[in-house]
Nucleic acid binder design. Structure first.
Length: 644
RNA sequence: GCCCCGGUAGCUCAGCUCGGUUAGAGCGCCGCCUUGGUAAGGCGGAGGUCGCGGGUUCGAAUCCCGCCCGGGGCUCCA
């Protein structure tokens, strides 16, 4: 007996010799998993099968199938409207799907996209059956060559399989592994999102393809919700919100692309973040250092960076000597270490710097604060003995977790990049070094109770690393912290210590940046909170708001009290209606408003309004301060003091 | 770097196809009136090198070319 499980959990007994589609309620599933293998619903059940699981849009496989068929509908629509278009590839992606077309040099206009979308709807209405067909590879090559689909022929020629599958719907046929939906009519709500360009197989030496992106859903409501969410994400774009809240700007036409100027309010937040970082690092046994922004290019020749990093550096010449603006802080920290002979007793030595660096990133990769040309790393280099490596890694991860939680991030994903053991000759350092280092990384993560993914062969030539990604309030992942071991620089700079037995040994170096770059982290934080920073980070923590001008005197007294309590507060000037001024402060995202009117002047109280919560009622000013003091403070200064 | 799209007031945008009054709107800003109780009170005013440079034309925000900057992608991210 073959069990057939429907998406709603019900189980049927499958009949041999009939397709899955015939045996389930109409449109109750999209695709099926037969003994772990994905198949079309039109697949015929045969002997020897154990379990069949029908999947709907709630499963990743269901969505992928849905979007994959949608991409075929897109391709079919394009072929109908632009018969000369040559098909590239058209996969489902994380959200939706795309298809690449070679239009022989032209591109799609917005009107074209609308027509394509209309044609897609027509194909859906036609409710064409989607039919799988298997054929020999040679036969397929002949078929696609006869259609002029040169890219499909190219793909086929590179395949190993002797038999390939194609899918037909109406007049349209495409090379495809599948699986697919049984009918085009299964796609209920669709939207062509935008067009862009991409190179055939992602290689810029290849022809340019026009890539059309789309999304589809089983109901109009879901499509609407998705489009609204997209709009939400767009609205919390730090490049829009930042200047809107007067935090920073990037007047690239005046100062060049990828450079930031911090306005007073943004600078306040940044200063709070940086002070917090410095205090915490000092508490955790780091020493604070500073290093210059420029140096002889030779310094990076020694580090070996110059060779392949030169194009990313700002290089200039003075009195016949080549200088460069620093693209990284490591060599300077090494020089601090090397300023004298070091004993094993001094290790681990942890040097921390908010180091501003400049990198000439290619113009196409710049993206607001998230990818800038000038940025400040929360950079540290730890010099340690091999014996203390694991303990150090553990401490770094612990610090990282503390920082992330302090900023309101709860969910992390950890990856560890290791070498490729089949090609040890491509890596710096001995096999023994690598194995010990990699197990130290893994051991530290296990001790911390983290789950992690091992990315074999992803390590840099000079050492393995740990990457930490965090998940923000709307589910997006951001690569943030990196903890990178380095066997290379200590050798190049001859960074050594005298061990207990009097012998000179080479240190192991850990590069680590936990927020990564202050700019980038700030951008992520801004999008995470959509501008509504928690109280300890808000640029204006509280605003005193007199109802009328006659309340200004009392309002100033209240303001003075707040300021002397160390709260970042300001005063509204009482011009305009109260409602208008409250709206202004709400839009500025000021977390706390203290309203002062006749009643408050009379009673000596303040009326507290919390953003998002509305009017909390009146309370005594001192009572207010007692109640909120903790929340006004950075996490490490709460509860009397001490990080832990 | 490459491909496509875009750049008009501080901001968001209309006007550009098809060249022709004094380039508009809303928000913001400034002034006056309004003295108010928890998300928009009223009236008036100022504000523009239409990204920059060149060309076509009697005439260019509008058409053409080059450059700069931005956006979406590709690639890159030691």
């Amino acid at each position: 007996m073959v069990k057939l499980r429907l998406p709603d959990g019900r189980e049927l007994e499958a009949k041999i010799g009939e397709s899955i589609l015939e045996q389930i309620p109409p449109e109750s599933g999209l695709v099926a998993k037969v003994d772990g293998r994905l198949v079309d619903l039109t697949w015929i059940v045969h002997e020897g099968v154990e379990t069949i699981e029908v999947l709907d849009f709630n499963s990743p496989e269901g969505r992928e199938t849905y979007w994959h068929t949608s991409s075929h509908i897109l391709a079919q629509a394009v072929k109908r409207l632009f018969p000369e278009a040559k098909l590239g590839i058209g996969p489902a992606i994380e959200e939706g799907f795309f298809y690449d077309f070679d239009l022989g040099g032209r591109s799609f206009s917005p009107e074209d996209l609308e027509r394509i979308e209309e044609e897609m709807r027509r194909i859906v209405r036609e409710n064409l059956p989607v039919v799988r067909e298997e054929m020999g590879r040679e036969e397929a090559i002949k078929l696609f060559r006869s259609m002029g689909e040169v890219y499909k022929v190219e793909l086929l020629e590179e395949m190993d399989e002797d038999v390939v599958s194609v899918y037909r719907q109406g007049e349209f046929v495409d090379l495809c592994r599948g699986p697919h939906l049984p009918y085009t009519g299964y796609v209920k709500a669709l939207k062509v999102l935008h067009a862009s360009s991409a190179y055939w197989r992602g290689d810029e030496r290849n022809p340019v393809m026009q890539r059309v992106y789309g999304i589809s859903f089983p109901t109009e409501e879901e499509l609407k919700r998705y489009l609204k969410m997209r709009e939400e994400a767009r609205k919390r774009d730090h490049r829009i919100v930042g200047p809107q809240l007067d935090l920073f700007s990037m007047p690239s036409e005046l100062i060049g692309p990828g450079l930031v100027i911090w306005h007073p309010k943004g600078a306040r937040i940044r200063r709070v973040i940086e002070d917090f970082l410095v205090r915490v690092h000092l508490k955790w046994g780091y020493e604070l250092v500073y290093s210059p922004h420029i140096a002889y290019t030779n310094l990076w020749r020694t580090s070996g960076h110059l060779n392949y990093y030169r194009d990313f550096m700002y290089v200039f010449e003075k009195e016949g000597i080549e200088h460069a603006v620093k693209p990284m802080n490591c060599p300077f920290h090494i020089l601090v270490y090397k300023s004298k002979r070091r004993s094993y007793r001094e290790l681990p030595m942890r040097l921390f710097e908010l180091g501003t660096v400049y990198r000439y990133e290619r113009s196409g990769v710049l993206h607001g604060l998230l990818r800038a040309r000038g940025f400040t790393q929360d950079d540290a280099h730890i010099f340690t003995t091999p014996e203390k490596l694991e303990e150090e890694i553990f401490r770094v991860i612990e610090l990282d977790e503390y920082l992330m939680r302090s900023f309101g991030f709860e969910e992390f994903k950890v990856e560890i990049s290791t070498w490729d053991p089949r090609r040890p000759e491509e890596y710096m350092g001995s096999e023994e070094d690598w194995i010990r280092a990699q197990s130290a990384l893994e051991e530290a993560l296990r001790n911390k109770g983290y789950e992690y993914e091992v990315m074999e062969g992803e390590a840099a030539f000079y050492g393995p690393k740990i990457d930490v990604k965090l998940v923000d309030s709307i589910g997006r992942e951001w690569q943030l912290s990196t903890i990178q071991l380095d066997f290379n620089l200590p050798k190049r700079f001859n960074v050594t210590y005298v061990d207990a037995d009097g012998s000179e040994k080479t240190v192991i170096m850990i590069h680590r940046a936990l927020l990564g770059s202050i700019e980038r982290f700030f951008g992520i934080l801004l999008e995470h909170y959509a501008g509504n920073f928690p109280l300890w980070l808000a640029p204006v923590q509280a605003r005193v708001l007199p109802v009328a001008e006659r309340h200004l005197d009392r309002a100033r007294e209240v303001l003075d009290r707040l300021l002397s309590a160390g709260i970042r507060a300001d005063l509204d000037d009482a011009r305009g209606t109260l409602g208008y001024r409250i709206r202004e402060s709400e839009l500025e995202k000021v977390p706390i408003l203290l309203v002062i009117g006749d009643r408050e002047v009379e009673s000596g109280k303040v009326a507290v309004r919390r953003k998002g919560k509305g009017n909390l009622g009146s309370m005594d000013l001192e009572e207010f301060l007692r109640e909120f003091t903790e929340e006004f403070l950075p996490p490490d200064l709460r509860g009397g003091s001490s990080t832990f």
